[in-house]
Simulated scan of single mutants.
Amino acid sequence: MEIYQTEEQQVEAIKGYWAKNGMTISAGIFLGFAGFIGFNFYQDNQLEQELAVSDSYQTLMEQSATDAKAFTENGEKFISENGNNSYVSLTALALAKESATHKDWTQVEKQLTTAIESAPTDGIKAIASLRLARVQVQLEQYSQAFATLNNNLPEAFTAAIEEIKGDAYLQQGKKDLARNAYQTAIAADGIATSPSLQIKLDDLAQVITLPTTKKVVAEPVVTESEDK
């Protein structure tokens, strides 16, 4: 490193450095400043968009309680226009619930599938998956239901998963598998959220059949007097 002995030498050195590198430094400062402004603008724009989507979602939820038809139409539109937004999954769950009241199971499956695919968290994905599996069991789509339940759901949902599996096995007449599934659900503290689990298991209690005893008929005793 060079050592400058006088202020004049320092000033001349600064002038020379600025003459060689001033344009690059200025450009860097300008780009940095522009980037800062652009980033803040981007953040503000994103925030405005999020608030607008949030307001639209809130309006939809209010509409769902007063005008089911308009809610369904606007809900579908909301999903198509906000495919990557976290509110899409919640809207799809609400639409599925509305379709279920009309027993429109095709729409229920469609909306729950959308909720799963767009879920922003594993928890919402699991809730949508459990609801879809229950519908599939009700429609006797057992293989699809098991595939839905085996889709890497969080361990916290083990009890609910096993209970639905038990229901599917029971409807198929597979009582041993149903019993095992219900026992696994109870072991995972499932009774805390589904008290009927114990009733389901009790209904499957094995009936112990005692072996049938063969009736023994005593042979008549023949005495000497009778023999004669």
Score class of each variant (00 low, 15 high):
Y142G: 05
T24M: 08
D227Y: 15
Q10S: 06
Q198H: 03
I25G: 01
L90W: 01
Q198T: 09
Q141V: 06
A126H: 05
A192D: 06
I14E: 04
D203S: 10
T101I: 08
S129D: 02
T223Q: 11
N150W: 05
I164T: 10
S86H: 01
A145M: 04
Q10M: 08
V207F: 06
S143E: 15
E117D: 15
Q144W: 04
F30E: 03
F33D: 04
V135D: 04
F41E: 13
Q58R: 14
G38K: 07
T106Y: 09
I25M: 06
G83S: 04
Q136T: 09
Q9K: 08
D167F: 07
E81D: 07
L51S: 09
Q49Y: 11
V216A: 09
G35E: 02
M1A: 10
K214L: 11
S54P: 03
N151E: 10
A52T: 12
I37H: 08
T106W: 06
T113K: 15
Q9C: 06
P120E: 05
E48P: 04
A156N: 03
A168N: 09
A100D: 10
A92H: 01
E7P: 14
K215G: 09
I208V: 13
A188N: 02
P211K: 12
G83C: 01
F33M: 10
I161C: 00
A128Q: 04
T59D: 15
D55F: 11
G32H: 08
V217H: 03
K125M: 10
A34G: 09
K214C: 01
E62A: 15
T59H: 14
I199N: 09
S196H: 09
